[in-house]
């Protein structure tokens, strides 16, 4: 048997990291909030402060889910691109770091922002921006320029946005957390609304990416329509909640976010099935994971839905947030 090379190890580590993170995020997401509340939350101002910390942790979780998705996705895709450019290692490192940071944040009950977390999230956001630039450059320089061919098969333009979103959500999380007893604000904007808007915009962008790639797959399976129809509705609900001052509880938006979270996770299964439909099926996994639909991509919808839920929760607790 041939021993796995250095690159293969990196990718395997990426995938393992993704799975671990996914499992821990999910178990954190389903753990009852009340238990942790009573454990560590400071007594004073218990309800509002505990609420902001709780929201902040939810946002860490969302950021982590996105980072996990990026880690696994960029590992596989950049491995496929043979790491031709050294810069292609960057998203792996940054998303791994962001994921670790988010796990740390998810476990942290203290009502203070954390410098290292803040810094990591900012680096993640910057990486997303720079990565988008790289991908744009890659597509533009191919023969045919910004043609369907290159949008389909060149570096995916939308992909680096996921790590940007992860960074943004993480950054928001720290702002919410440090707000403590005051009204949480982000750059002077009410935090809940700002996060809802970011998550809504993120949903739209991610829909664009899924739409493009599912169009490349000619929507050969009707389920491929789900991620281009459900998320825009979710985005509309979030954006309208962000602009709504009536103090309503946004039940529909909340349920829709849960639906999107389920869709994002179910997407993993659908993509796994998609992989099986390539020549050799899962027996030929080492090739088909690369050529089939990207298994780690759909959870980015779940990550954004988690952020949406956190934002809606925050708005419920602080009607003016």
């Amino acid at each position: 048997m041939r021993l796995p090379g250095e690159r293969d190890l990196i990718v395997m580590a990426g995938i393992a990291g993704f799975s671990m993170a996914l499992v821990s995020m999910l178990s954190a997401a389903s753990a009852p909030a009340a238990r942790s509340d009573t454990r560590l939350a400071p007594r004073r101002n218990r309800s509002s402060q505990a609420q902001t910390v709780e929201t902040a942790r939810k946002l860490n979780r969302a950021a982590g889910m996105l980072a996990a998705s990026v880690l696994a996705d960029s590992s596989v895709e950049h491995y496929r691109g043979s790491f031709k450019n050294k810069a292609m290692y960057t998203p792996l490192l940054v998303s791994a770091l962001t994921m670790a940071t988010s796990l740390h944040g998810t476990a942290d009950m203290r009502p203070f922002a954390h410098k290292a977390r803040d810094a990591t999230y900012l680096v993640a956001a910057a990486t997303g921006l720079v990565g988008s630039g790289f991908h744009l450059y890659n597509v533009g320089k191919r023969v045919g320029g910004f043609s369907w061919q290159n949008l389909f098969y060149g570096a995916p333009l939308g992909a680096p946005m996921a790590i940007l979103l992860s960074g943004l959500l993480g950054f928001c999380s720290e702002r919410v957390r440090e707000a403590g007893r005051t009204r949480p604000r982000i750059f002077g904007l009410p935090a809940g609304r700002a996060i809802a808007a970011v998550a809504g915009a993120g949903l739209l962008g991610t829909t664009g990416e899924a739409g493009l790639l599912h169009f490349r797959g000619a929507y050969h399976n009707p389920f491929m329509l789900l991620p281009v129809t459900l998320p825009p509705i979710g985005a509309a609900l979030l954006l309208s909640a962000a602009g709504d001052r009536s103090g309503r509880t946004h039940c529909v938006a909340r349920s829709w976010m849960r639906l999107l979270r389920a869709m994002g996770l179910a997407g993993v299964g659908f993509h796994a099935y998609g992989v099986s439909r390539n020549m050799g099926g899962w027996r030929n996994w080492s090739q088909n994971i690369l050529s089939g639909p990207p298994i780690p991509a759909p959870p980015s919808f779940a990550g954004l839905a988690l952020a949406g839920l956190a934002a809606l929760g925050l708005m419920r607790a602080h009607p003016d947030a």
Binding site: R216, H220, R277, N278, S291
Partner: peptide, 12 residues
Amino acid sequence: LSAPRGLAHPCV
């Protein structure tokens, strides 16, 4: 095929 179709696999 550039995507699966029934039992036929996409091009490798």
